[in-house]
Computed example of a mutant assay.
Amino acid sequence: MFKPGAKARCTVCKHLFPLAAPVREMKPEHAPLNDDSLDDLLGDNDASFSIDSKPAKKKSAKGGKKALVLVLLLLVLGGAGAGVFFFKPDILDNATQALVQGNASPEDVVATDNIKHLALRNIRQYYQPNEKVGQLFVIEGKVVNNFNVPKELVKVEATLFDASNVTLTSKQQYGGVTVSLFQLQVLGQQELESALNNKIEILTNNTNIAPGQEVPFMVVFYNPPANVAEFGVKVIEAKDPPKN
């Protein structure tokens, strides 16, 4: 199904996301390296190191030695790439994550690694009339820690889209705090924001989340645009508890 720009929608949470490029099929362990396999291993970033399909005319002995050195260099690089491909695929995974994020910095890669095993669960959204504000658009759910170490200060980002998948508005929120239906009905915007960002509750419920445990979250949009057609939510941040 993959093609540039292709997207898919999750059947559970209805989040719209881009399809990843298909994984290349691994070649047999003892398959000989040809020009095509060298290109595959070196990738597009190494396009300058290409082998001409037609042999160049011999101009001098020095030119022939340079060509030989270039071929040997390509073979060495190809062998190194093959070793990484077969024996250290996790290195390629991290590099791919960085490329997906647009040539992400090392800090961005670390941040991605720190949330990749945090899963969203029981996501739901609903409109709620509020006597002071008007209409509320509420998104709530839970974030499950599937790491084998504790995590804390989990933050999510919710986004509202129109029917053309254009972003209308987005909002970030720390987990650990939710409010009751009665509060959603009667509290004003400032009161709701104060409740949802209560530092004491966040530090109580959103720190030292053990493996397998979960933290709730709630994001509230006030008087959302009338043309909201879709919503999305994702984990964008988490931290490691300080070491004793």
Rank of each mutant, 00 (worst) to 15 (best):
Val23Tyr: 01
Ser37Ala: 14
Lys14Glu: 03
Leu42Asn: 02
Ser37Asp: 01
Met26Pro: 10
Leu68Gly: 10
Lys66Val: 10
Asp46Leu: 15
Pro18Trp: 04
Leu72Ala: 14
Ser37Ile: 00
Leu16Val: 11
Arg24Asp: 13
Pro32Lys: 03
Lys59Ala: 04
Glu29Pro: 01
Asp52Ser: 15
Ala21Asp: 07
Val71Arg: 12
Leu73Phe: 15
Asp36Thr: 11
Gly64Asp: 11
Pro22Met: 08
Glu29Tyr: 14
Asp39Leu: 00
Asp46Ile: 11
Ala20Asp: 13
Gly63Ala: 14
Ala47Ile: 06
Ala21Cys: 06
Pro22Thr: 10
His15Ile: 10
Ala20Glu: 14
Ser53Pro: 08
Asp36Lys: 08
Ala67Leu: 13
Gly43Lys: 04
Leu19Ser: 02
Ala47Met: 03
Glu29Thr: 10
Leu33Gly: 00
Asp40Ile: 03
Lys66Ala: 12
Leu19Cys: 03
Ser50Ile: 06
Ala21Pro: 02
Leu33Pro: 00
Pro18Val: 01
Ala31Gly: 03
Leu41Trp: 00
Ser37Val: 00
Ser53Arg: 06
Asp44Ile: 11
Ala56Lys: 07
Phe49Asp: 07
Glu25Pro: 08
Glu29Ser: 10
Asp35Gln: 08
Asn34Glu: 07
Asp39Ile: 00
Leu42Asp: 00
Asp52Pro: 06
Asn45Ala: 13
Pro18Lys: 03
Glu29Asp: 09
Val69Pro: 04
Lys27Met: 09
